[in-house]
């Protein structure tokens, strides 16, 4: 041990954890690096932007709900492949996914984000924040883009991103967990593996602290998403009930 690891977690165990979680991430990351490179980072043309902007609010909300749900399905698969996740009781698996799946979608967003142009891959091309104007959530959209930009600035490797995503999913402080201790153990091990990886990759000491700040930023983004959804649902209850993906409704209590 180099003093960073607990006496019960060996270096070999941490290396193994890094390998397994990285593999799970790559198998479920929705877009591979090679695919992303082939996307040619094409931006929407002005008339395409205007066409999104002129969509009725409910149509744009539905489109975004569908895209978020697609991304979340991959996160669920990721969670299932994290060592120990499927050994948790089913209540806790659900609690962790309800609270953490959208957070991981936001973390993964940096893979499909172009910092230079402030655009994100959406519906086949790269979209700036103005594309989402019809949602009526400009402040939230700006915050999501700012978050993606700041994640990009950390230049995390796929391995580091994988470990951070697992760390987020295994947050032991989520409300309604039944076997908190069990989750805590898994999260601690994941954190050790992340620290171990950062050291191995010779990242500067500040990266882990920067990632710690991201945890609260993610929570804020997700609670604001819930607020916006509540406001939307208050005006369009039938659209949410009949047109939104069932998984989205289960996760966000719509």
């Amino acid at each position: 041990s180099d003093g960073e690891t607990s006496p019960t977690t060996s270096m070999a165990e941490l290396d193994h954890l890094v390998q397994v979680i990285s593999k799970s991430h790559l198998e479920t990351c929705q877009y591979l690096r090679e695919e992303l490179q082939q996307m040619s980072w094409q931006n929407f043309l002005q008339d395409e932007v205007e066409s999104y902007q002129s969509k009725p609010r409910e149509v744009m909300w539905q489109l975004c709900a569908v895209k978020i749900t697609e991304a979340i399905q991959y996160v669920v698969e990721f969670a299932k492949r994290i060592d120990g996740f499927m050994d948790l009781c089913q209540n806790d698996q659900i609690v962790l996914l309800k609270a953490g799946s959208l957070e991981v979608v936001f973390v993964r967003m940096c893979r499909v984000f172009d910092s230079q142009n402030n655009t994100v891959y959406f519906d086949g091309k790269f979209a700036g924040p103005e594309v989402f104007k019809a949602l009526g959530c400009d402040d939230l959209i700006t915050s999501v883009f700012d978050f993606a930009k700041s994640m990009c600035s950390l230049h995390l490797s796929e391995d580091e991103l994988a470990l951070f995503s697992a760390f987020i999913l295994l947050s032991a402080d989520r409300t309604w967990l039944q076997e908190k201790l069990q989750v805590e153990k898994l999260q601690q091990k994941t954190q050790l593996a992340l620290q171990h990886l950062l050291q191995k990759n010779q990242r500067e000491d500040g990266v882990l602290n920067k990632l710690r700040f991201k945890v609260s930023a993610l929570r804020s983004l997700c609670s604001r998403h819930t607020e916006k959804l509540s406001a939307f649902r208050a005006v369009y209850p039938d659209i949410v009930r009949t047109h939104f993906p069932p998984l989205y409704k289960e996760l966000f209590g719509a």
Partner: peptide, 20 residues
């Protein structure tokens, strides 16, 4: 359980990303 039917299904299925 009924409240999280889809999540339960996804957790129980042995799906692969290709199936998604």
């Amino acid at each position: 359980k009924e409240k999280h039917k889809i999540l339960h299904q996804l957790l129980q299925n042995s799906t692969s990303p290709v199936d998604l």
